[in-house]
Amino acid sequence: MSDFAAEIDTSGLNCPLPVLKARQALAELTTGQQLHLIATDKGAAKDIPAFCKMTGNALIDSSETDDKLHFIIEKGGI
């Protein structure tokens, strides 16, 4: 088991689905818990940071491995 409260793999899904799936997953978490989001949609590289900024969640880390984008998002207090 990972250190994340939730992990979702949106591989193969295009905008806006990775953001919508992230929103749904974060709604189930409590403040301070972390979500690991995996995406293949290159647009997510801009969409997820913008989503975090607009919603008050913290983008802890983002990286790319094996053509997949990985985001660690910490749920904010909003």
Rank of each mutant, 00 (worst) to 15 (best):
Q33W: 01
L37E: 01
D9K: 02
I78Q: 14
I8P: 00
G32D: 00
D67N: 13
P16D: 02
K42V: 14
H36R: 14
S63Y: 10
G56L: 02
E7C: 10
L59F: 05
A50T: 08
T31A: 15
I78S: 12
I38Q: 03
S2D: 15
D66Y: 04
N14T: 13
A44G: 00
A58N: 13
M54R: 15
G32Y: 03
A22W: 01
L13W: 06
V19P: 05
E7W: 08
T30A: 07
E7T: 14
A25K: 09
L17Y: 09
A45V: 15
E64K: 07
D67S: 12
T31F: 08
D61Y: 12
I8C: 02
K42T: 13
K53F: 06
L17S: 12
M1W: 12
T10F: 00
L69H: 01
A25M: 07
I48A: 02
I72G: 02
L20H: 06
L59I: 06
L37W: 01
K46E: 15
K21G: 07
E7L: 10
F4Y: 13
L13D: 08
G43K: 13
S2E: 13
I38C: 04
M54F: 11
M54G: 10
I73N: 03
L29F: 00
F51A: 07
I60F: 01
Q33H: 05
S11E: 14
S62D: 12
H70K: 10
A27T: 10
D66R: 13
N57E: 08
L13R: 09
L37Y: 02
D67L: 13
K46I: 13
P16G: 06
L13G: 02
T55V: 08
D61R: 15
L29K: 01
S62F: 13
I60Y: 06
D9C: 08
I72T: 10
A22P: 04
N57D: 14
I73S: 00
L20M: 09
Q34T: 11
H70E: 10
L26I: 07
D61H: 13
I60S: 05
K21A: 15
I8Y: 00
G77C: 11
S62R: 14
V19D: 06
A39M: 03
I72A: 04
L26G: 02
P49Y: 03
G56F: 04
V19T: 12
N57M: 03
T30R: 10
A50R: 08
Q34C: 12
L13V: 07
G56M: 06
D3A: 12
Q34N: 11
D47H: 09
A44N: 02
I38N: 05
L59D: 08
G77E: 09
D67R: 11
I48K: 01
E28M: 12
F71W: 07
I48C: 05
D9N: 14
G77V: 07
H70G: 08
I78M: 08
C52D: 03
F4T: 01
T31Y: 10
L69G: 02
G12N: 04
A27R: 11
K68Y: 04
I60V: 13
S11V: 12
I48H: 01
L37Q: 00
F71P: 01
E74P: 01
N57F: 04
F51Q: 02
G12P: 03
E64C: 07
L37S: 01
G12M: 11
I8F: 05
